[in-house]
Amino acid sequence: VDAIVACSSSQYLCKTIISQAGIQVQNEYNLLKASDQFPDTTSGGTLPCKKILFIPWSPNSRDPTDVKSSLSTFISTAFTLAISVGSKSIAFPAVGCGKFHFDPSIIAKDMLHETRKQLTKYKIKMNISFILLPIQQNVYDEFIKYLNQMQTVDLMVSYKNLMKKQDDQSTIAYDKKIIKITLISTNDNYLMKCKQEIIDLARIFSIKSKLTNKHDMLDWSQNTINKYYKYCLKQGVIPTLDFENVTIELIGTKDTVHEAEKYFYELTSETFKEARIHAVARNVIWSVELIPNSDQWEQYSFKLNGIIEDAFLKEYHHELPEVILAI
């Protein structure tokens, strides 16, 4: 752990931590105490941490409102100090649950609530631990109880996201679901190992696929684009259509990404079919003379035929290649 929090108001806790940390920390702590510079930090000494954060905690009364306010200050001060020294993990004591004899239910609830509040405020990833003595089974039970209750909140966070195609004002709203997993362990090594296994497992079952040179999607109408987005999102695939670089990026599980790729080709086939029907319905086929004055003609593909016919109907004659209409 990067930082251990010590309650400087608890002589018993401070004495225990300092004796374990060694003479260097003892000297640093004495200087802080002599000048009354709490809250402040010392080095980690011989303890398995980089910094020790000495922070006072002494509620004005045993009233739950005063306790909550004092714990809020205690936790927020720890975050401020930890972030200032670059810590990525903090270990907190369950203050008040020893000789102060505070209700462990109140302590656990308020400490967890403020910790979550600080993590949300700073929007950072930080490993948080609460250190308990082996004899504090009742305190452990209260922390577990409120931690489990917190898991039911924001387990699935839904919000609206908008997809846009360049300057077109059409948008597609969808719900994105985020699943949070809380791991509990008395051993940091087991905790990190389990976390890594979950990450590895997620990577095995999810992929990112990139389709390149997909010029066919330039022929898609806005309705077709919307249709594809809706299909992907319904399957749990996040699509990104880059019309400038004619690429498609798909993120999801292997099976759903594969289905999204298949659906892309199905929509492209439908687009070609519509272009063919449009050309046949008008009984118009555009051809090109292979060699000037040779009277040897080759029909354009249905796709190009549709593009040329569309331009002709819009009277964009200056964009048309030199062709002869064959009916």
Rank of each mutant, 00 (worst) to 15 (best):
residue 180 K to Q: 09
residue 270 E to D: 06
residue 257 V to R: 02
residue 267 L to G: 14
residue 186 T to P: 13
residue 216 D to M: 04
residue 201 L to C: 03
residue 198 I to K: 03
residue 266 E to Q: 10
residue 217 M to S: 01
residue 186 T to H: 13
residue 241 L to G: 08
residue 239 P to D: 00
residue 171 T to G: 12
residue 238 I to F: 15
residue 253 T to P: 00
residue 197 E to T: 13
residue 183 L to N: 02
residue 234 K to C: 14
residue 224 T to I: 09
residue 200 D to M: 11
residue 184 I to Q: 06
residue 178 I to S: 09
residue 211 L to W: 05
residue 268 T to M: 08
residue 193 K to Q: 15
residue 237 V to G: 01
residue 260 A to P: 09
residue 235 Q to H: 02
residue 244 E to P: 01
residue 180 K to M: 09
residue 182 T to W: 05
residue 253 T to E: 03
residue 236 G to N: 03
residue 249 E to N: 07
residue 194 C to P: 09
residue 260 A to V: 02
residue 266 E to V: 13
residue 227 K to P: 05
residue 174 Y to I: 14
residue 203 R to Y: 10
residue 249 E to V: 06
residue 220 W to P: 07
residue 170 S to N: 05
residue 234 K to Q: 15
residue 273 K to W: 12
residue 196 Q to M: 04
residue 203 R to W: 07
residue 214 K to R: 07
residue 244 E to C: 07
residue 250 L to C: 02
residue 166 Q to I: 10
residue 252 G to F: 02
residue 256 T to I: 07
residue 212 T to M: 11
residue 196 Q to V: 02
residue 216 D to E: 06
residue 203 R to D: 08
residue 248 I to Y: 12
residue 172 I to P: 04
residue 225 I to H: 09
residue 265 Y to I: 02
residue 165 K to G: 02
residue 168 D to P: 04
residue 273 K to Y: 15
residue 262 K to E: 05
residue 234 K to H: 13
residue 191 L to E: 03
residue 253 T to V: 04
residue 248 I to V: 07
residue 226 N to Y: 06
residue 202 A to E: 06
residue 217 M to T: 01
residue 180 K to L: 02
residue 238 I to V: 12
residue 251 I to Q: 14
residue 229 Y to S: 00
residue 209 S to V: 10
residue 186 T to W: 07
residue 165 K to P: 07
residue 229 Y to F: 14
residue 234 K to R: 09
residue 202 A to G: 10
residue 263 Y to M: 03
residue 204 I to Q: 03
residue 181 I to D: 05
residue 202 A to I: 14
residue 169 Q to W: 08
residue 247 T to Q: 12
residue 201 L to I: 01
residue 255 D to T: 14
residue 216 D to G: 07
residue 220 W to F: 15
residue 178 I to C: 08
residue 166 Q to F: 14
residue 205 F to S: 12
residue 222 Q to E: 01
